[in-house]
Design a binder for these strands. Sequence first.
DNA 1: ATTGACTCTATAGTCACTATAGAGTTTAGA
DNA 2: TCTAAACTCTATAGTGACTATAGAGTCAAT
Lengths: 150, 150
Amino acid sequence: MKIGELAKRTGCSVQAIRYYEKENLLPSTRRSDGNFRLYDESYIEQLSFIRLCRGLDLSLSEVRQLLSLKNSPGADCDEVNYMMEAHIQQVEARINDLMELNDQLRALRSYCSDQQTVENCGILQSLSSSVDDRPTGDTHDRHNGATFSG
Amino acid sequence: MKIGELAKRTGCSVQAIRYYEKENLLPSTRRSDGNFRLYDESYIEQLSFIRLCRGLDLSLSEVRQLLSLKNSPGADCDEVNYMMEAHIQQVEARINDLMELNDQLRALRSYCSDQQTVENCGILQSLSSSVDDRPTGDTHDRHNGATFSG
DNA sequence: ATTGACTCTATAGTCACTATAGAGTTTAGA
DNA sequence: TCTAAACTCTATAGTGACTATAGAGTCAAT
């Protein structure tokens, strides 16, 4: 099958497949006379594995590690466990950050009732004022996990 | 003060400050004879506003909107409210996605007990097997909110 | 005069792709 | 057989919010 069919059958974009190949997550295939990539059924499984991992938010480098572990069946699977554990902790940390963030956003929203002008908008006031009444800005613990880390 | 001091006093990197200037989030300053940027105290407040918004995960384009609203005090603040509401919903959707994800990861982790080989690793098996026993892969609802949207 | 700390601009890199340009290939219908 | 549409190819640029680096200039202290 050609790349378009593989894309359709895996729910993946054509460019993503080419990208995975370039990044050595998928082995390169044979080509047709016209230089089109030709895939057999086994690629559906391989690509689905990648998509499944990505759906779990694993990075491509983590997926690469899992793939190489898959190919050495005798190795013990501590590494897999370790990676999953680390990933779970990352996800949970991110959830905690976002929930804290959500509290702050909701508090902020409550400062502004409708039908006011920007001049009196509690949200903007609250975002603007927090500097003046604090000594240097170093003393309050800054929420530092909110920006995307990767 | 020069850029380094501003950076220290706001907890911001020097490059980030230059970036904000380039992106028109901070007005450009006067320069010294040697072409160094010179800031007065008001920049601390302006930069802190930006950092605070970023700490709430607002995008720079959202921050830009807020800044322009701040500068038109007579306007009504519906826009601010609308933006905050949209942002809160985004954050909450992301939290839900991550919590679902977390359930899946924990389930996956439970499939593999220690001291096994990769060959028998329940995690890898479970990531690999889910294709063969399903018709096309289209029927099961794919978790599609896990990848970062921005 | 020189060292070291700071600053400048410009450019490349990050991540996991998406989007586009410009070219070639294949397939279906007239 | 011609042609148009649909597909594929490579290469390159763009996304967001920065960070990191190179190579040069500036400034303060010794």
